[in-house]
């Protein structure tokens, strides 16, 4: 199959990238755009290490045909747009709670969790583990990741509350 040159909006820049057949978005981001923050742990949608934002929604880019992303906005952990504040908070908490070991799963978890906090899908500490069912971490045993997410969620909820009441 011949590659097709397709305009992709990645991290705010529109660029033409060659896409062949049903080649995955993860593949194209890594090989053509050199965004190696997008990790591919399983290529089956189970591990979540390839999570990116598509029109603001977290998706696993390994199962997303790149060709289907034409005309849509792709964001990776490198340039999260309106989520940059939340992401920075979460990245800092992950570091401070010593949650990062090999590091392969972390960018995907950062992208997913900051999107879900932003969308209000994580309302309490009890919502965190169920939201992580598509994020495999083989190193940490999760507890510190869950703690870090909870601190960011609580701080963010507090900030929203203050905004709402002022």
């Amino acid at each position: 199959m011949k590659p097709e040159l397709v305009a992709l909006d990645v991290n705010g820049d529109v660029r033409y990238v060659p896409i062949t057949g049903l080649q995955s978005l993860a593949d194209v981001l890594r090989q053509e755009v050199h965004l190696t923050s997008v990790k591919v742990g399983c290529a089956e949608g189970y591990c979540g290490s390839c999570t990116v934002l598509l029109d603001g929604e977290p998706v696993v880019s390994c199962l997303m045909p790149a060709i289907a992303c034409e005309g849509r906005e792709v964001r990776t952990v490198d340039e999260p747009g309106e989520l940059s504040g939340l992401q920075a908070d979460l990245q800092r908490e992950l570091c401070e709670s010593d949650a990062v070991q090999c590091g392969m799963c972390i960018p995907g978890i950062v992208t997913l969790m900051s999107a879900l906090i932003h969308q209000g899908e994580i309302r309490s500490a009890a919502d965190i583990s169920p939201a992580l069912v598509g994020s495999i971490c083989r190193c940490s045993g999760y507890a510190r990741i869950v703690d870090a997410v909870e601190r960011v969620r609580a701080a963010h909820a507090g900030a929203l509350h203050r905004e709402g009441s002022s």
């Binding site: 979540g48 998706v59 696993v60 069912v133």
Partner: peptide
């Protein structure tokens, strides 16, 4: 069903 990201796909 599935996972949060997959449910969006």
């Amino acid at each position: 069903a599935a996972t949060p990201a997959l449910r969006r796909m």
